[in-house]
Design a protein around this nucleic acid. Structure first.
Length: 385
RNA sequence: GGUUGGGUGGCUGAGCGGUCAAAAGCAACGGUCUGUAAAACCGUCGGGCGUGCCCUACAUAGGUUCGAAUCCUAUCCCAACCA
């Protein structure tokens, strides 16, 4: 399949590249950070907030939307885009992460996975096929396939077994995609842009922290002819070195012209390391969850607005930030809002944190174009410890 | 003025003779957070050091007792009701 992805620049000193991924809902400039809207909402924010900080793609979640409000309702409401009034791109997680995070409520079989709803205990069965059906009902631009994510502390034998299931599920999902989207409606233009009229399909590469498993998974996924690749099973407690090793094992086996998306990342430093190794897309709850707990990400490093010193500081969260929160409000005011339990503090800090990451991605793209990516990365890593 | 019930750590509030440096919650102080079961969670929270002990503490001052936040007396406050 043609991937509607156009690489616009490559860094001469690393595997970093800048590009444009086209979807039914517009262009996503890569490297990209996608905030997480699990239940059809980036917590504390609405669609305008997200557009204003330069978000081009959101991640949402099939498992959560399937349980509530239900994929039938979403279909009736014209899909998630119309439901939440978000007119840019959406990528959906298959629910594979919930196979992991809600593992005490599930049972994996060759056919699929039995889940107990975390809301009411009701039983549900997910298969690689019906998950794609649900993603179609949701109407997301990029569909991911059902996978099995294991803790990387698991025994390698079990990890290999889980990977084999993930591979077979990917094959089934890939086949099912062809029945849901029998004809590709992707037109390539001369200038490198694309017109896209169908939903895209990304496979997920597992294999934990083991280079051999990762390489095997990557080769297999490359053979399935998808629009792009997810690297899953990372950012679950492994070290930065282990993560780098896993990425380095995967990337050489993936076709250059298709996007690579590392699921669940992350902190600015981790993303910069992955970009250097050829990753294009990221998502993470980090900036928003941490914001609701008071942590602020800035160009000078992180701090927590809960700490005493910020009660009286009459300066913006980040003097180098262009978000409206930093243009208008003092640290003292945000400290007050947080202490007073005012919900606005969650919104304002979330907006700032997301802007910090989208801005970091903008800078990364510029530096890739200028061939100065590695210097930029080193400088950021030194500042952001 | 009288009657009754009270005064406990920054606050609210348990305890009502030893196991009490005193439950719990809040506030405060610090930390954690990675395809969100999170406006969550975890520490610390009288002082000192040799970390086990010592010192200072349950309105104030006396007293009873081997031992008192807990019982008695007086004083000072507070609340409700009655004059």
């Amino acid at each position: 399949m043609i991937s509607p992805f156009h690489i616009t620049a490559k860094d001469p000193n690393s595997k970093a590249r800048a590009g444009k991924l086209y979807t039914k809902h517009g262009v996503v400039n890569t490297p990209v950070f996608m905030p997480v809207a699990t239940q059809g909402s980036v917590k504390a924010l609405n669609d305008d907030d997200l557009r204003n900080v330069g978000v081009e793609c959101l991640l949402s979640n099939t498992y959560h939307l399937y349980l509530r409000p239900g994929t039938e309702l979403l279909k009736k409401m014209g899909g998630l885009h119309n439901f939440m009034k978000w007119d840019r791109s959406i990528l959906t997680d298959s629910g594979g992460f919930q196979v992991h995070s809600l593992s005490h409520l599930r049972k994996i079989t060759e056919e699929g996975v039995w889940f107990k709803s975390h809301h009411d205990g009701s039983k549900h069965f997910f298969t690689p096929e019906n998950v794609l059906d649900y993603e179609q009902a949701i109407g997301s631009d990029i569909w991911t396939c059902l996978d099995v994510l294991m803790p990387n502390t698991a025994h390698k034998t079990d990890l290999r077994k889980a990977l084999e299931i993930t591979k077979r599920w990917a094959e089934r999902a890939r086949k099912h995609y062809d029945t849901l989207v029998p004809q590709q409606k992707i037109t390539a233009h001369k200038d490198g842009s694309f017109k896209v009229d169908n939903n895209l399909f990304f496979g997920i590469i597992q294999g934990s922290i083991y280079a051999d498993l990762r390489a095997d998974a990557a080769k297999h996924m490359a053979s399935l002819d998808t629009h792009g690749f997810c690297i899953g099973g990372l950012s679950v407690g492994e070290t930065l070195e282990e993560m780098n090793t896993a990425v380095e094992a995967v990337v050489p086996h993936l076709p250059e012209e298709k996007p690579r998306y590392l699921m669940g990342l992350g902190t600015p430093i981790e993303m910069l390391h992955c970009i250097e190794r050829g990753v294009d897309m990221f998502d993470c709850v980090w900036p928003t969850r941490v914001a609701r707990n008071g942590q602020v990400m800035t160009s000078e490093g992180k701090f927590n607005i809960k700490n005493t010193q910020f009660r009286t500081e009459d300066k913006p969260l980040d003097p180098n930030c262009d978000c409206f929160v930093c243009q208008k409000y003092s640290r003292a005011y945000l400290s007050h809002l947080y202490r007073a339990g005012e919900l606005t503090s969650h919104r304002l800090i979330s907006i700032h944190n997301i802007r910090f990451l989208t801005r970091t991605m903008e800078l990364a793209r510029e530096h890739i174009k200028n061939g100065t990516y590695m210097a930029f990365k080193e400088e950021m890593c030194a500042k952001y410890k």
